[in-house]
Amino acid sequence: MSLFGRLRESLSRTTTQIVERFDEIVRRADEPEQRSRPVDVDTIEALEELLIMADVGMPATEQIVNAVSTRARRGEGLRDMVKDELRGIFAASAQPIPNGTTPHVVLIVGVNGTGKTTTVGKLANLSKNSGQRPLVCAADTFRAAAVEQLEIWATRAGVDIVRAREGADPAAVVFDAISSGRSRGRSPVLVDTAGRLHTRVNLMNELEKIRRVASREVPGAPHEVLLVLDATVGQNGVTQAREFMGAAGVNGIVLTKLDGTARGGVAVAIAHDLKLPIRYVGIGEAMEDLIPFSPDDYIEALFQETW
């Protein structure tokens, strides 16, 4: 099955719900006699509700709704207009991934319970399958059994792991992993960090230290700092992204657990408010269920078929 197909399949539950509601709105708005008129208040309200219920957040919702209500007379379909707006928001957030020096260092950060360890396991698998020789680094020395969990993933993916004792200094483990990656010719080095709430200053400083150690070892490292967000997260996701950008230099998002009914609309909010690109999406529990994010596929999958 194509990646697009897989994404569409995982989003299908999401889609049916969105689409059913949306269909109703759109059918009314797109009837020929309605097309040349401004969009009526009911439609705008329904659209607003729909976007907010998908966790898209107020600023992005307002932008989309305003755009739709001002452009509505041009005879375009409502559906295309909303898609256009979403596409515009994602396009404005696109950034290239910094690279050049090796090993390529990727830090995986986020609050507790979003799926960081699982994402590192899946990323290792993805990178190995694309012909790279990844090394995973277990720098979550806080949570009970986190290292063991990552070890199991590493074994499944068939990649090497650098680990430390529970309670060890995470920055030291990262140092070990980078030196080991360099001497064994491994890249990327994928670093799993402990979950931390963005309000805990000391824990955020710890990330700063990891960054410092990485950049001393490899110029330009960490090349990627990926914030893992759970698709069920609400508007606090925007705050998380903002804080982790400031303290840890986050330059990309991984959106996990998209196989539920949550829409991960916060991704739109983050792209809109913070111009942070989404790099990967997690769409299931199997090892292959992490795929690179494509805005077009996401939007198409979200708004496919019935309308």
Binding site: D230, T232, V266
Partner: peptide, 10 residues
């Protein structure tokens, strides 16, 4: 999770 969004109800 206190951070959860609109889907919590569902």
């Amino acid at each position: 999770d206190a951070m959860t969004g609109q889907d919590a109800i569902k």
